[in-house]
Each structure stands twice: as structure tokens, then as C-alpha cells.
């Protein structure tokens, strides 16, 4: 599992692809939310958050994802969580995140 300190965000057309990694679960993960807001302001209509390298998501991570959802809802942008492992998908389901973002399991 790789742990990066910087938000790994790429833009592909109107889609912003965000790699959550492990630092989503720390206060530094706030950068993801800021970057997503910037990408939406720059015209992205779709936010794709990849959990390819994310084993678990804690409460800080959930809060940051809610921030991403909040950013997207203000601009009618779509949010998709991809490569989500079954446990995390289950948690998203339980907490109700699946009502605001499409979940694509790994």
C-alpha cells in the first residue's frame, strides 16, 4: 500500500479523478476537498474518487468525503467512488453515503 502526502488529483476532460490513498484519513486529507472544489469551479461535472490504494476509511475520511459530496451537490456534479473494497462499500452503504454518490466496488 502506498502512502502519499500530496493529493493525487488528475483531470480527464470534465472528470476529475482523485486518488484517496491513506492520507484521506488524516487532517491533511482536507486538501482533497479543496482540490475537488477547485476542479468543480474550473468546470468539472464529475468527481471520481478512487479507493484503489485505500484499505479502510475512518471518520475523518468519511467527513472529507462528505465535503466532496457537498462541493459537488452545490454544482450539480456527479460523485463516483470507484475501486471500493467490500468492507468500505458496506460502511458507505450503512452511513448513507451511497445516497449521494455512486459506489463502484473493486
Amino acid at each position: 500500500m502506498s502512502i502519499t502526502q500530496e493529493a493525487d488529483i488528475r483531470r480527464e476532460g470534465e472528470t476529475a479523478v482523485v486518488y484517496a490513498n491513506e492520507y484521506l484519513n488524516k487532517i491533511t486529507g482536507e486538501k482533497i476537498e479543496r482540490e475537488c472544489r477547485d476542479k468543480i469551479a474550473a468546470g468539472c461535472s464529475r468527481l471520481l474518487v478512487s479507493f484503489r490504494d485505500t484499505e479502510i476509511v475512518n471518520s475523518i475520511g468519511i467527513s472529507i468525503l462528505l465535503g466532496v459530496i457537498d462541493a459537488a451537490s452545490g454544482a450539480n456534479a456527479e460523485v463516483v467512488f470507484t475501486d471500493v473494497n467490500p468492507d468500505t462499500a458496506h460502511l458507505f452503504e450503512t452511513l448513507g453515503l451511497s445516497r449521494h454518490a455512486r459506489i463502484v466496488t473493486a
Binding site: I27, E30, N58, S59, I60, G61, I62, S63, I64, L66, I69, D70, L95, G96, L97
Partner: peptide
């Protein structure tokens, strides 16, 4: 405060 706030919102997935 910021970290605690994230933990509080994230614990029950509170939107705002």
C-alpha cells in the same frame, strides 16, 4: 478543533 469536527461529522456521516 478541525480534526475533532471531522471525527464528529464522520462518526455518523453528518452532512453539515
Amino acid at each position: 478543533i478541525r480534526t475533532s469536527f471531522h471525527l464528529l461529522l464522520g462518526s455518523l456521516a453528518i452532512m453539515r
